[in-house]
Amino acid sequence: MKKAVILLSGGLDSTTCMGIAQNEGYELYPISFDYKQRHRKELEAAKKIAEYYNVKEHRIISLDNVGGSALTDKNIDVPEYKGDGEIPVTYVPARNILFLSYALGYAEVIGAEAIFIGVSSVDYSGYPDCRPEFIEAFQKVVDVGTAAGVKGKSIKIIAPLINLSKAETIKLGTKYGVPYHLTTSCYNGKEKACGVCDSCVLRLKGFAEAGIEDPIEYEK
């Protein structure tokens, strides 16, 4: 069976990628990252999601915290959603570069054909490493910087949600039976989602536009 590494954060988008990859016939090899984020809830969610899909292996990789983000520095408050087009303080410097680099090495070791990443450039916070330009640039790195690429068997970076709205993503995931009740999206990581941070607002908007009830609880 063909193999795929899935960047699994425990959130809505990465879990949708699990459903898509499974539907396309891949054996799933999710990896999650402990990058000293401000809460553990997303890692706990990732574990439950990996168990749900009965994966052969789920790796959790520990990385040092470089700081500079509200998601890694508790001295920086998580802001409410503004949608003003500015890159918010929840941006984690070079996060997807680091995640994809590790995933790439892992993919070469296990002989995976693809790496799935749940980035979107439609309903998103404006992070530079979630744009098509970034995925295209990283694919070039894969093609020229790995043994697989040099041998003409390059590992494909697949971003199936890149041009989808959050509503379209939710509809697709629902079609594939994605367990959204196990996911978490809130940047604050409390028992109930805050409902006002970027991630919560975009998630709620997506479920509302999809006409589907969000199965998680919110404070607001």
Results as ranks from 00 to 15, higher is better:
12 L>G: 00
14 S>A: 06
14 S>T: 08
17 C>Y: 03
17 C>T: 02
21 A>W: 02
25 G>V: 13
25 G>I: 11
26 Y>E: 06
28 L>E: 03
29 Y>V: 01
34 D>P: 09
41 K>M: 08
43 L>M: 12
45 A>F: 03
47 K>I: 11
50 A>I: 06
52 Y>R: 10
54 N>H: 13
55 V>H: 02
57 E>K: 13
60 I>G: 07
60 I>Y: 04
62 S>M: 07
63 L>K: 05
63 L>P: 01
65 N>I: 11
65 N>C: 15
66 V>F: 09
68 G>M: 09
68 G>Y: 06
69 S>C: 10
70 A>P: 13
72 T>L: 12
72 T>Y: 01
72 T>P: 06
73 D>A: 06
73 D>H: 11
74 K>F: 07
75 N>M: 05
75 N>V: 04
76 I>C: 07
78 V>C: 12
81 Y>L: 07
85 G>K: 09
85 G>D: 09
86 E>K: 15
87 I>K: 12
89 V>E: 12
90 T>D: 11
91 Y>W: 15
92 V>T: 12
95 R>E: 05
95 R>I: 02
98 L>S: 13
101 S>Y: 09
103 A>L: 08
104 L>S: 14
106 Y>F: 15
111 G>W: 04
113 E>R: 14
116 F>Q: 01
117 I>N: 02
117 I>K: 00
118 G>Y: 01
118 G>V: 00
119 V>N: 02
119 V>Y: 01
119 V>K: 00
126 G>K: 06
127 Y>S: 04
128 P>W: 14
134 F>T: 00
135 I>Y: 05
136 E>A: 14
136 E>K: 15
136 E>S: 15
137 A>Q: 08
137 A>P: 05
